[in-house]
Computed example of a mutant assay.
Amino acid sequence: MGQLSETQLRRLEEHKYSCASTSLMDPLMQKWWCWLVDQCSLTLAPNLITITGLIINIITSLVLCYYSPDAKQEVPRWACFLCALGLFIYQSLDAIDGKQARRTGTSSPLGELFDHGCDSLSTVFVSLGVCCSVRLGTLPYWMFFQCMMAVTLFYCAHWQTYVSGTLRFGMVDVTEAQFGVMAIHLISVIFGSEFWSLKGTSVLSPVVPLIYILAPAVLIAWKSPENLYLQNPIVYLLTFGCVSARVTNRLVVAHMTKSEMAYSDSSLLGPGALFLNQYFNCPIPERTLLYVVCAYVIYDVVKYCRQVCLEICQHLNIMLFTIVPRCPPASGHASEKNGSSSTSKYMTRSISKAKSH
């Protein structure tokens, strides 16, 4: 028995591709994609273009996995550059396969299925490549979250398509995410994968958590269909201000303890929830979620500060808000320190001066 029933095959003939996009970068890339497809022979099958890009993407990602099988080792810089180049080639070929199909009059439901099927596999390898490039294996649970989130977002995008009948791309979507991944690889090329160490000692390492705060703050306010910032400026700024305070406190602790500063932070889960809610077309009212996130980040920063203060107090044997009376020193020692010792010192000086005269 086959995978598709006769009914499914008949309905497949009636399928019409529907897509809506407000991507910021797609219009900028159209000239490159149109030029590239014009260089292709009219005898070149669109699906062959798609599979070629996928194979290149998989091979370049596996090179990184070879040098860092558990995503903990530092990978060669040339391998990161190769992976970035492989993703750019895949992106370009993936963008022109549909153009080639329309150009050659060979558009079919198979082409759409083949394209999205290759995208689903590419998502897995792109995620693994990023993990190796930034050494995310040093935090295995974050690595698990990142990879699972990538494939989940891809699935949910097509779930939305299944329900609405139209594949929708937002202003910041696949193309922008791919360029973001390429930028990560190129940073690893310039500074080395050690730059992304989750406990970085680099002078630039504190910049990364700041970017994690500023980027979501700007994007969420910009993309909000409910004008989340303009309608709730105090709560919005309080939310991201508390996240910034949390990260700043960790920077101060890292400085005072001469230790490394981790990039990941539990307070970033709040902005992440707002971002994901927008990605799924706001199933939760944005204002309601903002208030929940605000409460969470306030709790998180208070909890962190409390724990740090208590741990330091316990270690130094001091109190936070009170002064513990100290036992006065023994009288003998006190007189020696404050009286006889000082007197003998000055007497010695006086005698020395007298002798000199």
Rank of each mutant, 00 (worst) to 15 (best):
W35T: 01
A101I: 04
L93S: 08
L9I: 13
L121I: 15
P46T: 02
V126D: 02
K99C: 06
I58M: 15
L121H: 01
K16W: 04
W33N: 09
L64F: 14
E13D: 15
L64W: 11
L9Q: 13
E6G: 12
S23D: 13
I59K: 01
L85H: 04
Y66R: 14
V63R: 03
S107K: 04
T104W: 09
L36R: 03
V124M: 14
F88A: 14
R77Y: 06
A79V: 07
N47I: 02
I89C: 15
E6A: 14
T7V: 14
T52H: 03
L87W: 02
I56D: 12
E112P: 08
G98Q: 05
A101T: 03
T60N: 08
P46Q: 05
D119G: 01
S21W: 04
R77D: 04
M25Q: 02
Q100C: 02
S21P: 10
S107M: 04
P109A: 10
G98M: 03
R102M: 07
A79R: 09
V63K: 00
L82S: 11
L110T: 07
R77W: 01
L82H: 00
H15L: 14
V63F: 15
S120N: 07
Q39H: 07
V124E: 05
N47P: 01
K16Y: 05
P27C: 03
C83S: 12
F114I: 11
C40T: 13
S18M: 09
G105K: 01
I89M: 15
L9H: 01
A45I: 08
G53Y: 03
K99D: 00
S21E: 11
S107E: 04
G111S: 07
Q73C: 01
R103I: 08
D115L: 00
